[in-house]
Write a protein that binds this DNA or RNA. Sequence first.
DNA 1: GTGGTCTAGACCACA
DNA 2: GTGGTCTAGACCACT
Lengths: 139, 139, 139, 139
Amino acid sequence: MERGQHELTFVLDPAGGVPFYRQIILQVEMAIADGRLRPGTQLPTVRGLAVQLQINPNTVARAYSELEIRGIVTTQQGTGTFISDQEIELSEAERDRVLMRLVQSFLATASGYGFSIGEIIDFLTRVEKEQSHGEASSS
Amino acid sequence: MERGQHELTFVLDPAGGVPFYRQIILQVEMAIADGRLRPGTQLPTVRGLAVQLQINPNTVARAYSELEIRGIVTTQQGTGTFISDQEIELSEAERDRVLMRLVQSFLATASGYGFSIGEIIDFLTRVEKEQSHGEASSS
Amino acid sequence: MERGQHELTFVLDPAGGVPFYRQIILQVEMAIADGRLRPGTQLPTVRGLAVQLQINPNTVARAYSELEIRGIVTTQQGTGTFISDQEIELSEAERDRVLMRLVQSFLATASGYGFSIGEIIDFLTRVEKEQSHGEASSS
Amino acid sequence: MERGQHELTFVLDPAGGVPFYRQIILQVEMAIADGRLRPGTQLPTVRGLAVQLQINPNTVARAYSELEIRGIVTTQQGTGTFISDQEIELSEAERDRVLMRLVQSFLATASGYGFSIGEIIDFLTRVEKEQSHGEASSS
DNA sequence: GTGGTCTAGACCACA
DNA sequence: GTGGTCTAGACCACT
């Protein structure tokens, strides 16, 4: 039985114009979002991932460094890079306000492309199902 | 689930790395595929849209010129830019890819604040209800 | 009459072990903190500052890029780098909590070095005076 | 304004780029200059301090060894590390430089959240009052 | 002209 | 072994 969503393998798409370092960042973020990467987990070493992805170590370092600035990972000189504890403690009210702002800006963008809220909800629901599916089948 | 919007409003997202001119192109294309923009309709003037979006007129001009090269719009010197008769086909997969990109970057941000997909869906559902209420009473 | 604090000139100290890019970041932050740099102001161009400081453009770019990730500056492709509008709107209660956290961690560190709160207040008061002095004398 | 603290507690700041071993060295030096650490006093064991600070024992060892090289502490095999008789002079300017560095990085962060120096001073003054109250009642 | 990305490679600092 | 900094230089994309 494959372990599915629980393994983290980075894949780069040279086409599409999305820069490598941004692809790495996105994949780390998504992996955290759906639970494949948990706080404390060590990321691949800069050099290791560079070899695996066949790219320059600087490019990996850049991705990791941006993740660190955003507080998503923590890096310890000479030790490695780890997923942070992610404690953005916000009060309930504050959380709602933040979510409101995020959603509003997202909806504005999405509706510029002609997507309706209903469509977006459908899409998210599908994504959610896939996620829980992955978790359920891998245990 | 019903699709699309009834008005055409350009929205630029400075983040995400997608260049402005490409965002404009995509939004025009999707609006045509959508039926929000019909053949013969005039697009905003270069200068007008530039002011509205707070960007350099050259950027708008570049988007329009690329749209013209693709045969999607026609420019009439001194008159304006108009949607041509050209059909635009956007497969469901195409649309999904765009939505996927939008949703991914949104989810990445939101999960950084500790919001789960479920939570976001709930929130969106609430927003949707409010909206349909608003529409119902205003029609 | 010299304009004093109102001019922004970057100075790098090769000694001291503080990396160049961090020195640049610090100087931008301090300039914002004491009002020499206001929202909307354009920073020197990457290449321009690199020449002026006699360092590699990449190093300046790195500093700017970190400032952008932190939301302190905004960069527009092909246009330049600008001080952001800095709208971190927080409720009063939230503000207090954030300040409390910042101060606590700062005090913990400072007291590790043997500084008392009184000493720190004295120091800050001196800094504040110098700032208002600068502003007053330059008008 | 009275100076210093009565207890010696090491505090590490992972941010700011100052390596751990150097932070430890500085804190020991300042504690000696301060009178919080007197000749003959035993420092925490390498292993003990490492556990307490949640860092690698090698890092503590490196700090101690550098302190020994400078003649500031003496290591007695199998017994421990002790403060030597060596006087440490820290000029006012020296102290100020350290405080300046601490305050600068703190102000940069705080001003990023929109806090002014005045506000911070007010807050610190309140904290100071509470502390002296606490001390008064507990003595 | 502006900034962005990536490479190659050197050298350093930390654990 | 780990990550961090800096350089030099190429090439691209946007305004």
